[in-house]
Nucleic acid binder design. Structure first.
Length: 423
RNA sequence: GGCAGGUUGUCCGAGUGGCCAAUGGAAGCGGACUGUAAAUCCGUCGGCGUACGCCUACGCAGGUUCGAAUCCUGCACCUGCCA
């Protein structure tokens, strides 16, 4: 048995360990040699989000520690959907699910090494679920599940006790996921499944199935649900999810999300998401305490995570844009090239010369409606090229379009957009 | 299949014929203070119009009425109990 720090120790100090099926057994298991681990991602959306990112970094750390990782994309489970506490899911069409599967596969790829002698494996559970007939499912799989136990799972129990109830479809979800674990156990020797804490019931369903059918033990590791000091889940920006796909959340918006993380939370997130050492992170935490206005920790966090998801080139671009746009200088002083680069990432819209600021706010998406735009101006929350606008009727003149191209429209302190002059 | 209850704005949740674009809370958004942070205080929070105003909205479709989120009918969905 090895004595050095294991992957479990690392997950622990990084705050990525919520619960395991059996701590001691799991430690022995990991110490005994490379382990095969899997985590599933359901294609319920066209992209992955913050919560999935947590799982991806767990797999990444696993692989780096020398273990074999399997990424499962839920072509079948995604057609069902795990029971959400608040509502029955609206089922996606099979086409939608298939399209999402394709997108998610490509999103996952950069996080892991799919080549070499410890290559990660990508599987789709539709491959072994689709051929199964309903009758075989009920006879061969269903017989191993006790409804008494199934209804005690928290996700199911919560729904049974609510007035929403639960459909048979979602009730069955845990069986599908258990089948996945069993299948991977049999075909690839997979013995560990990871997932979010809220997935505990679904994950352990697989452990139970393996035990019952194969008489062997398998393990589950869950990560804590990351919430901020108010108990809100991370990964929401303006009520919208922070996605990993650049066409759903631009790299600029992604970077901005991380740079705005509260001081009290930045250390935790550095541990979870970056490869920084404990010493580096502690130094950054000291920096936050001593010189908070420099936001050193947030800058590192934003840069590291953006690089992880979008690559170093994108990070350089959004860092540069952020420096320019949030700098104190007069944007009119910027040269045309710098300005163009900086605004390229921003939300934008085109406006005709002679349009009002209200038009520009709506066109750029900074305001949802003209009424909202007017209200914002009335509240003193709008500026053009860093000059506050007080007149609702203010017309964008030729001088407002820097280099005859673009006007920098700002809502509040940190929401910027580029109003490009229509030609 | 029967009976009972429910479906309100982003969410929770009031509202039982006019004073309702709809009480209240939360979230969101803006301002002040700051550091693109937190806390706090203030403001705001369906759409169009500068505005008297108009339009859309209280599950869906009809109806009664001068007038309906509020009453009636049908439908859909949800919950519970019974078969």
């Amino acid at each position: 048995m090895s004595t050095g720090p294991t992957i479990l120790d690392e997950l622990e100090w990084r705050g990525l360990l919520a619960q395991t099926t059996d701590d001691a057994a799991l430690r022995d298991h990991f110490a005994s040699g490379p382990v095969t681990v899997y985590c599933g991602f359901d294609p319920t959306a066209p992209s992955l989000h913050f919560g999935n990112l947590v799982q991806l970094v767990v797999l990444r750390r696993m692989q780096r520690a020398g273990h074999r990782v399997i990424v499962l994309v839920g072509g079948s489970t995604g057609q069902i959907g795990d029971p959400k506490p608040t509502a029955e899911r609206v089922l996606k069409t099979k086409d939608q699910t298939a399209a999402n599967v394709a997108r998610i596969k490509s999103l996952v790829t950069p996080f892991l090494d799919f080549a070499g002698d410890n290559a990660a494996i990508l599987v789709d559970n539709l491959d072994w679920t689709a051929p199964l007939s309903a009758l075989d499912f009920l006879r061969d799989v269903g017989q191993h599940f006790r409804v008494n136990q199934m209804i005690r799972k928290e996700s199911v129990a919560a729904r049974l006790n609510s007035e929403i109830g639960i459909s048979y479809t979602e009730f069955s979800y845990q069986i599908l996921q258990a089948m996945d674990f069993l299948h991977l156990f049999r075909t690839l020797g997979c013995t560990v499944q990871t997932g979010g804490q809220d997935q505990w019931g679904n994950l352990t369903a697989g452990v139970d199935l393996i035990h019952r059918v194969e008489g062997r033990s398998a393990h589950v590791i869950t990560t804590p649900l990351l919430t901020d000091e108010h108990g809100n889940k991370f990964g929401k920006s303006e009520g919208n999810a922070v996605w990993l796909s650049s066409d759903m959340t631009s790299p600029y918006a992604f970077y901005q999300y991380w740079i705005n993380i509260a001081d009290s939370q930045v250390g935790r997130l550095l541990r979870v998401f970056t490869d920084r050492t404990a010493e580096e992170i502690e130094a950054l935490e000291r920096a936050t305490a001593e010189t908070p206005h420099l936001r050193a920790a947030q800058r590192v966090l934003a840069a590291d995570v953006t690089t992880l998801v979008h690559g170093p080139t994108a990070t350089e671009q959004v860092e540069h844009a952020s420096r320019v746009l949030f700098g104190k200088g007069d944007p009119a002083a910027l040269d045309a090239g710098t300005l163009r680069d900086a605004t390229a990432e921003l939300a934008g819209g085109t406006v005709d010369p002679g349009s009002t600021v209200v038009d520009a706010l709506v066109a750029t998406g900074l305001a949802d409606s003209r009424g909202a735009a007017r209200r914002l101006i009335g509240e003193g929350g709008v500026s053009v090229n860093n000059v506050k606008v007080t007149d609702v009727e203010h017309v964008l003149g030729a001088g407002d379009f820097l280099h005859d191209e673009v006007a920098l429209v700002r809502r509040g302190r940190k929401h910027l957009a580029a109003a490009r002059k229509a030609s």
